[in-house]
C-alpha cells in the first residue's frame, strides 16, 4: 500500500473485477448469440455461440490466473488481501460460468 492507497484498493478489487467483466461478457454473448442465431452455426464440434462463450470464459480464467501468479505472497494484510481478491475472482469465474460446458444455450 506504500504511498499508493487508491492503487492498492484497485489491486484488491481487480480479481473480482475480472470475474465481473468475464461474467458480463459471457452473459452478453449469450444474449446476443441467442438473438442473432449463433447457436445454429457450427464451429467445429460445438456451435459458434458456445465457442464464443467458451473463449470468453477462458479469457476470464486466464486473466484471473495471471493476476494470481503476478501478485506477491505474504501473510501481512496488505499483501494478502490482493491475493485473496484474486482467488475470489478466479474461483467465481470458474464456478459461475462453468455452465457454458454443458447447459443448453438458448
Amino acid at each position: 500500500m506504500k504511498g499508493r492507497g487508491l492503487l492498492w484498493l484497485g489491486l484488491v478489487a481487480l480479481g473480482p473485477a475480472i470475474w465481473a467483466a468475464a461474467f458480463t461478457l459471457v452473459y452478453a454473448l449469450h444474449g446476443a448469440g441467442c438473438a442473432a442465431g449463433w447457436a445454429g452455426i457450427d464451429a467445429g464440434p460445438v456451435s459458434l455461440h458456445r465457442l464464443l462463450m467458451l473463449l470468453g470464459w477462458l479469457a476470464g480464467i486466464t486473466a484471473g490466473g495471471w493476476l494470481l501468479l503476478r501478485l506477491p505472497a505474504g501473510k501481512d494484510r496488505e499483501t494478502w488481501l490482493p491475493r485473496a481478491g484474486a482467488l475470489i475472482g478466479l474461483f467465481a469465474t470458474l464456478f459461475t460460468l462453468v455452465p457454458v460446458l454443458f447447459a443448453s444455450s438458448c
Binding site: 461474467f23 452473459y27 449469450h30 444474449g31 460460468l97 457454458v100 443448453s104 438458448c106
Partner: peptide, 10 residues
C-alpha cells in the same frame, strides 16, 4: 434460457 439460469443459479 437454461444457460442463463445456470449462470445465476451458480
Amino acid at each position: 434460457p437454461h444457460m442463463a439460469l445456470a449462470f445465476f443459479s451458480a
